[in-house]
């Protein structure tokens, strides 16, 4: 029997997720990264985002940017190795887009991954939903 999720955050079925509440969407040979509804909701009004320049090498597990809301600076972590191909200038100029449309116009960077299949370490939408539920249970 299907059960309703305990959490209240929006999750889309067309992409993968990591446990740092970031999403990854295939875009041809590139992967687009963004933050999830959980991140934007728990952060509150986002004031500023710092993103890497195109050409920056990403190292899995290492910070690639930061985000500020309410005098709190959170880190963005690379879910896989790769090179940044594009950063969303629109979101740098207007960080409120991250609150308004985190899965769409609020995308962060496009990356060419180094490994053949970096998706193996990511979560499906249902796995991420269970992960959010487990946070609520604590």
């Amino acid at each position: 029997m299907a059960t309703e999720p305990m959490h209240r955050w929006r999750i889309l079925g067309d992409r993968l997720y990591d446990t740092r509440h970031q999403w990854v969407l295939e875009d041809g040979v590139l992967l687009t990264l963004g933050i999830t509804d959980y991140t934007q909701d728990t952060a509150g009004d986002i004031l500023y985002i710092s993103l890497p320049q195109p050409g920056t090498m990403l190292e899995k597990g290492q910070p690639f940017g930061s985000i500020e809301s309410g005098k709190w600076v959170g880190q963005l972590y690379a879910p896989f190795d790769g090179v940044v191909i594009a950063a969303n200038e629109l979101v740098s100029e207007n960080p409120q887009l991250l609150n308004q449309d985190p899965y769409g116009r609020g995308w962060l960077i496009k990356v060419r991954p180094s490994a053949d299949n970096p998706r193996d370490s990511l979560l499906t939408d249902s796995e991420y939903a269970r992960f959010l539920d487990s946070l609520d249970e604590r």
Binding site: T42, A43, G44, S69, G70, K71, W72, G74, L135, R138
Partner: peptide, 11 residues
Amino acid sequence: HPRLKTPEQWY
């Protein structure tokens, strides 16, 4: 501190 998730809660 698993109950502390948001900046507001940490503050």
